[in-house]
Nucleic acid binder design. Structure first.
Length: 205
DNA sequence: GGCCAGGTGTAAA
DNA sequence: TTTACACATGGC
């Protein structure tokens, strides 16, 4: 019998996986830094992203970030890899945020998933990460950890949208609209922490 | 030394 | 629509 998303949520919650994590799991949730981190972590370990974020100290607000020159940015984000494509994409995205929304606060309030997906370098996962952890929207992030954990439960889909629907639709039945953002933010956080913890005990493969 | 990580864009079948 | 490949560093 296949478990529902809510049943998996409750199982993970019992493990107290987020006790050492920030309030909304993603470091500095609700800030522009999440936008930068979401792009930098693409196919990259968070450990390497942290090195880049440290190099970017003082530039992790929208207005400061757009003053960076591309070649300088490339050097700063070198530790998180793919810097030749991530640097121009991050700068373009930041300028588009400024041109379209004016401020980061207005971006948080007004941006849509479709607008994010039009940006070069933002795919479905990055869009959802930004919406959830930078904008506090009720959007569930699906990443490789999510697929790995669900696979253990015998749940496998083909498309990103199928994973997202499986997780979101069931939780929507059990949480109020106001509680949904926190439930999604927590759920994804628990999935990642569970997956990380497990791989220490027993490497997959 | 080889494999892989909190993906995405592009080109070709 | 699906598959294949480039992109790059650092940890194990």
């Amino acid at each position: 019998m296949q478990k529902s998303a809510y049943e998996i949520y409750n199982e993970l919650e019992k493990l107290d996986l987020l006790k050492d994590s920030p309030k909304f799991w993603w470091p500095n949730a609700g800030t522009f830094e999440v936008v930068v981190g979401a792009v930098l972590t693409q196919n990259t370990t968070w450990r390497n992203v942290e090195k880049s974020l440290k190099n970017l100290e003082g530039f992790l607000a929208l207005d400061a970030f757009v003053t960076l020159h591309e070649d300088v940015l490339k050097i700063k984000i070198k530790p998180s890899g793919f810097y030749n494509q991530k640097a121009p994409r991050l700068l373009q995205l930041s300028h588009n945020i400024k041109d379209t929304f004016g401020t980061f606060e207005n971006f948080q309030k007004s941006v849509s998933r479709d607008w994010l997906l039009e940006q070069k370098g933002i795919g479905e996962e990055s869009a959802d990460a930004i919406l959830c952890y930078a904008c506090f929207r009720p959007e569930m992030v699906v990443d490789s950890y999510t697929k790995r954990v669900l696979k253990e439960y015998g749940i496998v889909f083909r498309r990103y949208s199928e994973y997202k629907y499986f997780l979101e639709s069931d939780l929507k039945k059990h949480f109020s609209q106001e509680a949904l953002f926190f439930a999604f933010a927590k759920f994804h956080g628990m999935i990642v922490e569970y997956s990380k913890k497990k791989s220490v005990l027993k490497p997959l493969h």
